[in-house]
């Protein structure tokens, strides 16, 4: 009788101890996240219903910011550009990454060297990538147009022609996304048992057949993961566009992304209310697309 009482008391001091340590351990990050991330989200939402004055003062304005936002053709352009960018860049870069990952998975010599080269853009700062490509794309002295001249092709003004600028941006986005995708896909590929391929080739299956019937289905969970994170980051594209396309660029309407315009509204012209509205609409779009992706995964992702 006495023993169990002592035991329960010990138990409860242990539990109290656990509560103390648990909260102590999460306290710093919890406070930081609350102050810098969680509370600010609600604040942003609130700001989107306020009109901002020149000196940081703001007053309730209802849905006016949202109205202003949808009346501004620039904002429509930026959403269009971002959607096109994401829906072209993501599938394109994933397809290329799958091909490279499969090639690298073939027990070939020099795997590390190839992997290093494909990974280089990932460790290069996007601001630097923007600068490098701006030079490559230069209409008069850029190396790309010089090389096109060898084939007697008159290269376009990549970054100032409204018909080309988004394509140029998509190329840079793809080029810099391949490394990360490839590494994640390669580790997914290495998880596929070799015996499956051996069995298939004994049955006389061609490598192409094995690719579509074994590799793709078994890799689909990894592809799904890569697709989800790629879409989220594609919707936030900013850094290299900011470096390559200045606000005075004649093709700006066809180039600016949502974040580009968000930055302009919030931190260049000080319209924080409209910027907050833009941020919120983009947040909703990302959320909805991510949910759709999770819904659609049942149709094509194979979990064992």
């Amino acid at each position: 009788m006495k023993d169990t009482k002592v035991a329960t008391r010990q138990m409860s001091t242990l539990k109290k101890n656990d509560i103390f340590w648990g909260y102590l351990f999460i306290a710093p990050t919890l406070l930081g996240l609350l102050i810098f991330y969680i509370f600010p989200v609600f604040q942003t939402f609130y700001y989107s219903f306020n009109d901002w004055g020149d000196f940081g003062n703001y007053s309730w304005s209802g849905l006016q910011n949202y109205k202003d936002m949808f009346d501004d053709p620039q904002i429509w352009y930026s959403f269009r550009n971002t959607l096109v960018y994401a829906f072209v860049m993501v599938p394109f870069s994933i397809a290329i990454s799958i091909v490279i990952a499969v090639l690298l998975n073939q027990k070939i010599k020099g795997l590390t060297i190839y992997r290093t080269l494909f990974f280089l853009p990932v460790v290069t700062m996007p601001a630097a990538i923007g600068m490098i490509w701006k030079w490559l794309y230069n209409a008069d002295y850029g190396i790309i147009n010089h090389m096109l001249e060898w084939f007697s092709i008159d290269g376009p003004s990549w970054l100032t022609d409204p018909n080309w600028v988004l394509i140029s941006i998509i190329i840079v986005g793809t080029w810099s996304a391949i490394g990360t995708n490839m590494v994640i896909l390669l580790s997914g590929l290495q998880g596929i048992p070799k015996s499956l391929y051996e069995a298939a080739s004994l049955d006389g299956a061609s490598p192409i057949y094995s690719f579509f019937k074994i590799t793709l289905p078994l890799l689909s969970p990894t592809i799904f993961f890569v697709a989800v994170i790629s879409f989220i980051s594609a919707f936030q594209v900013f850094d290299f566009i900011f470096m390559m396309v200045s606000p005075t660029n004649p093709a700006i309407d066809s180039a600016q992304s949502v974040i580009y315009l968000f930055y302009h509204y919030a931190f260049v012209i000080g319209e924080k209310g409209i910027a907050a509205a833009i941020a919120f609409v983009l947040f909703i779009i990302i959320l909805v697309l991510t949910i759709i992706q999770f819904r659609l995964q049942k149709r094509w992702v194979h979990y064992e």
């Binding site: 996240l33 102050i35 810098f36 991330y37 969680i38 509370f39 600010p40 989200v41 604040q43 942003t44 700001y47 940081g56 989220i232 919707f235 936030q236 949502v258 974040i259 968000f262 919030a266 931190f267 924080k272 910027a275 907050a276 833009i278 941020a279 919120f280 983009l282 947040f283 990302i286 959320l287 991510t290």
Partner: peptide, 16 residues
Amino acid sequence: VLMIPPQAFLIPQYQI
């Protein structure tokens, strides 16, 4: 917090 895109907290962060 993982789900929140950065632009949704940048303005208040700047103000802090």
